[in-house]
Amino acid sequence: MSEIVNILLAVLYLLVFPGFLFLFFYGLFCEYFDRKLYARMQNRVGPPLFQPFADFVKLLAKEDIIPEKADKGMFSIVPLFAFAGVLTAILYIPIWRTDAVLSFEGDLVVVLFLLTIPSFALFFAGWHSTNLFSQIGAVRTVTQLFGYEIPFFFACLAPALIMGTWSISGILSQTVIRPEVLILLILAFIIAVISLQAKLERVPFDAPEAETEIAGGSLVEYTGRRLAIFRLMFNIKMVICAALITALFLGGPVLFPAVPGPEFIGYLLGFVVFLLKTLFVVFLLTMMRTVFARVRIDQLLKFCYGWLIPLSIVQFLLLILVRSMGWFA
């Protein structure tokens, strides 16, 4: 009996909350939030609330074209592959309490790996479309990957270094015990947000999908429902990356100080706090999108290797010093 309950619970986690259904609506809402904020910062009205949903439904209903010379198998399976990878990552990120649905020592590395899958999916999508524009976009995606991934990993591993655990839930429960440590991680937080912008391929780091020069990059040949899945995947990736940064640097769903009362109220409040904090991260990303203009791919690499990586090494040295002196213990 309990086995059946466990299986049902797993299906619920995967498909309803915090899995597919929640991420679908929250991802679309984050796209709306991002576009609306962008519009308001340009002093215009912006899209209505249902806009991302209308885009999604319209793309689902459009004609589905596979180019004649494209690799048909890869072309169709790659969006689903990326989508599945991104959806899996949410199970390891705490949403309503300090524990995630699943956790083990080292799940931080698994989440970082799962969040890298979309970049490679984008590469394969572009490469197997056999379109010149998409192939340039694909190569740029991978070139950019080598720029932002190292500082992003460094920044996300900094909390693991100071908290002494490699599990996201473990880091979060350590944060509850000693929240003052988060002050040390401000530099890592800034590096993580900047390299996240490059990871999501948004302005100013959108050289791989520059629509004015290479007509949309890797996704040039994608139409209809495959494009819809790719767009949804990007939205969900943004949500999950924001959730990861929230869990690592902003204390996740934990409200300081803890509220007294029954457990489920704490969970509900934690969930609201989680939503607010992820929206704050999305706000920072939108801010960067509004303020800066696109940089070239070589400028991005120079910025990553010249500034972000040295700064993250400085952050590491600081944390090693703090740990060896026994401060903040």
């Binding site: 885009d55 629509e211 139409t223």
Partner: peptide, 19 residues
Amino acid sequence: MPRSDVERFGILLQGSPRH
């Protein structure tokens, strides 16, 4: 451009004919 703000009608400029 932002002045006429066509995004309120959902209009977006796309680079590729496929989109």
